[in-house]
Design a protein around this nucleic acid. Structure first.
Lengths: 115, 115
DNA sequence: GCCACGGGCAACGAATTGGTTGCATGTAAC
DNA sequence: GTTACATGCAACCAATTCGTTGCCCGTGGC
């Protein structure tokens, strides 16, 4: 068996889990939503309308940045955050892989049952 | 504006965050990987090869079940768990939406800059 | 009937997380 | 230069999470 496909899913957890973990918070997911609409936004801007403190938002942004989902850049006296689509793309691709693998397994089972 | 698209992303966090949170753990993501290969497996079976206790695995499975990612069914003296593809599909769709929205925003910005 | 296997339940502990407040600092604006 | 704004940093707190151990119970095999 080639070192592809099969081990791909087995090796993925270590890389993908942190990304999913970062997305696994309501506040952070909202931030992603906001940032995907209007791309570079400052922390105070992102705090508007939220029910938590600016510091909380700041921490959340650092978490997202740590997972590679977002990137912050200081500009003057404010830090602008923008989406980093690569990480989200990889997460999406992982889910695609699971779907595909699951589909294959199901097809295999079906074939086995019908034989 | 129709009540679709735009509010879709805004309303999503509450529904999607728990799913991502459930996936945001290395052990649980491994379980998903195992279950997507061979579909119905018992808890002890899923514990094999893991470096944590059966109870830990059991708890993780409950978390996944709570998020709708997995479904367990008692069969004799063992509980068989199988993947529930719907939740993962929705997560995937969410990421697709973010991608699309982000792409549109980027296109809009580009158009604005070039005009 | 007896024993081994597969799990559930509960209590507990250590570590992490999500949030706060208070204060310090650099930058923009006037 | 003074003032207001945007942020960083640190300490701290409550709640949750991940994992353990110990014990009990139902089921299956012999």
């Amino acid at each position: 068996m080639s070192p592809g496909r099969r081990s791909a899913l087995a090796a993925a957890p270590r890389r993908q889990a942190p990304v999913f973990a970062a997305l696994g918070d309501e506040t952070r997911l909202s931030l992603v939503g906001k940032l995907c609409g209007e791309s570079p936004q400052s922390i105070s801007r992102l705090t508007e309308g939220s029910d938590v403190t600016r510091q909380a938002i700041s921490k959340h942004l650092r978490v997202l940045e740590g997972a590679g989902i977002v990137r912050g850049q200081r500009r003057g006296r404010e830090t602008l955050f923008r989406l980093e689509p690569r990480a989200l793309d990889q997460a999406r691709r992982y889910l695609d892989q699971v779907s595909a693998e699951w589909g294959r397994a199901l097809a295999g089972l079906k074939a086995y049952l019908e034989e």
